[in-house]
């Protein structure tokens, strides 16, 4: 097909930058531009509490240009701050994923465990992440493990609940097939139950990572130390509003990237044609 059209009409060389003209790029670009202009107009008057975008850039370009400086203490570049927060999320979230998937499969495949534990989880999952921080501090006595515990306890509920649903929804026909083929318990688990639950598990992981990132910023404001949350709080105490704004933008972008990262992992494990 391609060769026949090529014969009729000389193919124009495709500009590698032509994606810039696609509506998917132009539309959000215009929206951002409008937003910035409105912001600029609203905040450029005398006595405005918040800086305008131009002021933000003027005041923070050293921070933006040099993300990895380290002046000791908590005076570090934004890259290092975010990296510190990401490390906490990585530890807490990984632990939540392992424990959550195991718990979810246990509960999803056993009516007894479901009846026993589900009501407890339904209550625990509604507790706001930060409400766990004092009890974690009391139990663990240290800031760092407490912050990680907050991430863990925040991320685990959506993982448990979605994995449970995934294990429960294994179609009856799959179970019948496995009975006809006389699968042992472990064969059933690895060949049927787990693969059937994988799409649900990833839904839980994506919600979990999003909540972790929400929680870490709040938790770090309270525990202090290096991390993007405390950076924001510190900037507020020093009245460096421009720095807060730039940090918020970074937090948003990292949150988006984390979500995309889990989606990417899912596309590796579950290719689109398998869904």
């Amino acid at each position: 097909m391609a060769s026949s059209t090529a014969g009729l009409r000389p193919r124009r060389k495709k500009n590698p930058l032509s994606f810039i003209y696609s509506p998917k790029v132009i539309r959000p670009a215009v929206a951002i531009a409008v937003l910035l202009v409105v912001w600029q107009i609203l905040c450029s008057g005398e006595g405005s509490n918040l800086p305008s975008p131009v002021q933000v850039l003027e005041q923070t370009y050293p921070l933006i240009l040099n993300p990895f400086f380290d002046n000791g203490g908590t005076d570090k570049g934004l890259g290092i701050q975010i990296f510190a927060s990401l490390t906490r999320v990585a530890v807490g979230f990984s632990a939540a994923a392992v424990v959550g998937i195991a718990l979810g499969i246990l509960i999803g495949s056993s009516k007894f465990m479901y009846d026993a534990l589900d009501p407890i989880f339904q209550v625990l999952r509604t507790i706001p992440p930060l409400a766990w921080l004092p009890i974690a501090l009391a139990a663990l006595q240290e800031a760092e493990p407490s912050a990680i515990f907050v991430i863990f306890i925040t991320a685990i509920w959506p993982i448990v609940i979605n994995t449970t649903v995934g294990a429960q929804q294994v179609p009856q026909d799959y179970r019948n097939v496995s009975r006809v083929l006389k699968l042992s318990k472990s064969q059933y688990f690895f060949n049927i139950l787990f693969p059937a639950a994988v799409p649900y598990i990833f839904t839980g992981l994506r919600i979990g990572i999003g909540l972790s990132w929400l929680a870490i910023v709040a938790a770090e404001m309270l525990i202090g130390g290096v991390g993007i949350g405390f950076f924001i709080w510190d900037a507020y105490n020093s009245s460096l509003i421009s720095e807060i704004i730039i940090a918020l933008i970074y937090v948003g972008i990292v949150g988006l990237l984390l979500d995309r990262f889990i989606a990417f992992l899912e596309s590796l494990v579950v290719p689109a044609e398998q869904k």
Binding site: P171, Y174, N176, V177, V180, P195, A196, Q274
Partner: peptide, 14 residues
């Protein structure tokens, strides 16, 4: 020894 073909598609999608 008794192969079964079910009404609904019971192939494993993965």
């Amino acid at each position: 020894d008794r192969g079964m073909v079910f009404q609904h598609y019971s192939l494993f999608p993965w």
